[in-house]
Computed example of a mutant assay.
Amino acid sequence: MPSDQPSPQIIIQQKESMFGRYGKFLIAGLVLAIMVIIGMRTAYQSYFNEAGGPQERYLHGERFAQKKIAVIKVSGTISEADTFVKEQIDRVAKDDQVVAVVLRINSPGGTVTYSDYLHHKLRQLATGEIRQGAGKDQPLPIVVSMGSLCASGGYYIASAVGDTPDSIFAEPATITGSIGVIIPHYDLSGLLANWSIENDSIATHPLKEILSMTKEMTEEQREILQTLVDEMLDDFKDKIKAGRPVFQEHPQDLDEIATGQIFSTDQAIELKLVDKKGYLEDAMARAAELGGTDLQNVRCVDYKRAPSAFDALTGNAKIESKADPMSIQTLQNMATPRAYFLYGGLPGLEAIE
């Protein structure tokens, strides 16, 4: 007879894991740790940077040194459309830990007005006129490091080093020089005549259309423009003389090379436009020396553009930005005649460099 007693059941209970028992505490602890790390990183970044301006980035030397060598970058065409160089200068002026500046130039030049403005701001920085905080009114030595191209307006800015000896370095393959001024003008009147198109503009005076592309330039107009570029060239040479004392003693030597010609590094050294052949590290070492220290006891930094909110959110912060080639501002810059310290074939395209 079958037994009325139920068959015994064996229940195997798994031992509770440590994670299962304390999992909530571990997860909470992990979240707290991540928040602390993020907070510490934010505090660390804020030590080097201020919100809304160029962001400081460690480049070379002793990472946690108090004294700094600031590398200010001048890249691409010099134009009012790009204020990043000015922003870097302003950032350095506020930092009393900076003991010297390296001006890293890789530029074909740009507009006369903005090249002159940046030269002016750099001279103010060098003399301490715009410095703030503990460094107020303290001179700040500037050393130039030329990249692949430092021509025309680029060299104009380089002369902001003043008469400090051994202050302009060029890499072995650098192209420099192109000391001169150009006001671009394109005469399309013959082409328009072939299509029976006539300029029928109404102007207060014929000279109002002095750079019109639809009319042939008159001799009077050409003489006026030639006088302008000659005066601008004289100013260019004055800036060079202020930074290269050898040309104060022998101005005729500068006149002979201020023809718009470009030079190799060896040629530029022979012509006294450049002091030494060297790379960025050599310029930083010289800047440290002028700042009363050396590369083992100084932090070399450069700057990148402040990321937009979208860039910060996506982690896609850009170091440099380019102008929109189809923006109204770009098209206006292309169409507006102006004078340039520029080496290149398309001076009207500076806004989309």
Rank of each mutant, 00 (worst) to 15 (best):
L191I: 15
K215V: 04
I168L: 01
T227V: 11
V246W: 12
K208V: 13
L207V: 13
F169P: 03
F169T: 02
M232W: 10
L191N: 12
L225Y: 05
G180F: 08
D230R: 10
S201E: 13
L228Y: 10
P165H: 08
K239I: 08
E223I: 13
L192K: 04
L225D: 03
T176K: 08
G243W: 02
I240R: 08
A193H: 03
F236L: 06
H185Q: 10
T218R: 04
E209L: 14
V246Y: 14
I224N: 07
W195A: 15
W195H: 15
I183C: 06
E198C: 00
A258M: 09
E171C: 00
I257P: 08
L188R: 03
I183L: 11
Q226I: 06
I182N: 12
E219F: 12
H250S: 14
D200P: 00
E249K: 15
D230G: 06
L211S: 11
L233G: 03
V246A: 14
F169S: 04
L225C: 02
P184G: 09
R244G: 07
N194I: 10
L207K: 12
K208C: 12
S196W: 05
G177R: 02
M213V: 05
P245L: 05
N199A: 10
E171W: 05
D187H: 08
D234I: 10
N199P: 04
I240Q: 07
A170L: 02
D163R: 03
I257V: 12
E249R: 12
H205L: 03
A203I: 12
L211R: 07
E209R: 08
L207P: 02
I240C: 01
P245I: 07
I168F: 02
V229C: 01
Q221A: 11
A170F: 01
M232C: 09
I257F: 00
N199G: 02
T174F: 03
I257D: 03
S212L: 03
K239L: 14
L254E: 00
T176S: 07
P245N: 08
K215W: 07
M232Y: 14
I168S: 04
T174G: 04
E220S: 13
G180K: 06
T214V: 08
L207H: 09
W195V: 14
S201D: 15
S167E: 09
T218S: 10
D163L: 01
E209S: 12
S212A: 09
D187P: 06
V246D: 11
G243I: 08
G180S: 08
D235A: 12
A193L: 03
Y186Q: 15
K208R: 11
E219I: 14
I240V: 11
E216Y: 02
Q248Y: 01
I168C: 01
F247L: 01
R222G: 08
G190P: 03
D166W: 04
S178V: 09
T204S: 14
I224Q: 13
V229A: 05
G243V: 03
E220C: 06
E216T: 15
I168N: 06
A258G: 07
L225W: 07
P165M: 10
L188V: 06
A258K: 07
I197M: 13
I182H: 09
D187W: 11
